[in-house]
Amino acid sequence: MKTLALSIILLACPSAALCQQADPDPARIVVTGAGLPLPPGTPAYGSVVIDRDRLLNSASGRIESVLGDVAGFQQFRRSDSRSANPSAQGATLRALGGNASSRTLVLLDGVPMADPFFGYIPFSALVPDRLSVVRVTRGGGVGAFGAGAVAGTIELASATRDQLPVFSASALYGSRDATELSASYSPDLGGGLVSLSGRWDRGDGFQTTPEDQRTAATVPAAYDGWSANLRAVAPLSATSELQFRATLFRDERTLRFRGADSMSEGQDASIRYVSRGP
């Protein structure tokens, strides 16, 4: 056993002087190298980014209309959230076929937005004016979201301080007595910000039944809804902050026949601790 140990030592360090010369500075570490190439299937999961300019310039003012720019995006119904039944407002990617329960994970500031019972998305509560950017990633099980994202992930990010005026308001009126009122107030709060915003819109709606199929009970698809949002950001250090968000919404609408009314309402709140750094 002594002979074997001696042989190993001689092989590892045949010369004491050579070992002293090869001894690096213990306070200095240099690492060189290159990362592994991306997997061949990476392009299939490429993300599509929708910037704030596109969000603000949507004719409908609805987030689902903007998401329609992305190839493969589908809903269970072709109509937007002003006329379709709330429980039919699912989101699907990759041409898997529209479904009332979303096959796509929709996140607002990292928090899932799907209704916990039906699985639909409250699109009327997601006002484009309140968002900074939207990133759509097609492909099941992408990234950190795993199998929870069957058809992909839609990530919504709230608008930042430089994108929000201190005060803004708008009032719109159109055909069929369509009315939209919105306002926001976003003052600085210490080193952070607080933003309070709301929107109310209503309209008599349009006829969803072909003219030759209408009866005495046929009525336009009227809608009336509102949403309010409170968001606060408080810096804790140069690289970390605490974020709070609360949303309330309510929708009432009539679809096709008199008395075929539906209503949906909800509340959503989240607190996030965000740290940025190496």
Rank of each mutant, 00 (worst) to 15 (best):
P24D: 03
I50V: 09
P43R: 05
N85R: 11
R103L: 12
I9L: 08
P43K: 09
P24V: 00
N99V: 08
A100C: 04
L96D: 05
L4H: 12
I63D: 00
E64D: 07
P24A: 01
G35M: 11
L10V: 02
D25S: 10
N57T: 06
T3C: 11
P14S: 14
A59K: 15
R54E: 10
V66L: 05
I50A: 02
E64F: 08
S101K: 11
D23R: 15
V30E: 15
A91I: 02
C13N: 15
S87A: 15
S60V: 04
R103Q: 15
P86M: 01
V66R: 05
A84D: 14
I8N: 06
G35Q: 14
R78A: 07
A88K: 06
G72P: 02
A59C: 07
A44P: 01
C19F: 14
D51K: 12
P37E: 06
A27Y: 02
M1A: 12
S87V: 12
S101P: 02
D80H: 09
N99P: 03
A59M: 15
S79V: 05
G41C: 03
I9K: 10
S101L: 02
R78E: 11
P37S: 07
L6S: 13
A84N: 11
L55M: 04
G41A: 09
R62Y: 08
G61S: 03
R94W: 03
C19S: 13
R82H: 09
R28L: 14
Q20P: 05
S65M: 11
L38W: 05
G35V: 08
V66G: 04
Y45R: 12
P39G: 14
Q21T: 10
A27D: 11
Q75I: 00
K2D: 10
A27E: 06
G97L: 09
S15L: 01
G33T: 13
V30G: 10
A71D: 12
A100L: 02
S87I: 10
A27R: 13
R94N: 12
A59R: 15
N57I: 01
S47V: 01
F73Q: 01
A12D: 04
G33M: 14
Q21F: 06
R54I: 09
S47L: 02
Y45T: 08
S87G: 11
E64I: 00
V48M: 09
G41S: 13
A71M: 08
S60A: 10
V49T: 14
R62N: 07
L6C: 08
Q20R: 15
P39A: 12
S58N: 10
L96G: 10
A84P: 06
A100F: 05
G68N: 12
A17N: 12
A95V: 04
D53R: 13
S83N: 10
P37V: 03
L67T: 06
S83I: 07
G68Y: 07
I9D: 04
I8G: 06
M1K: 13
Q89H: 02
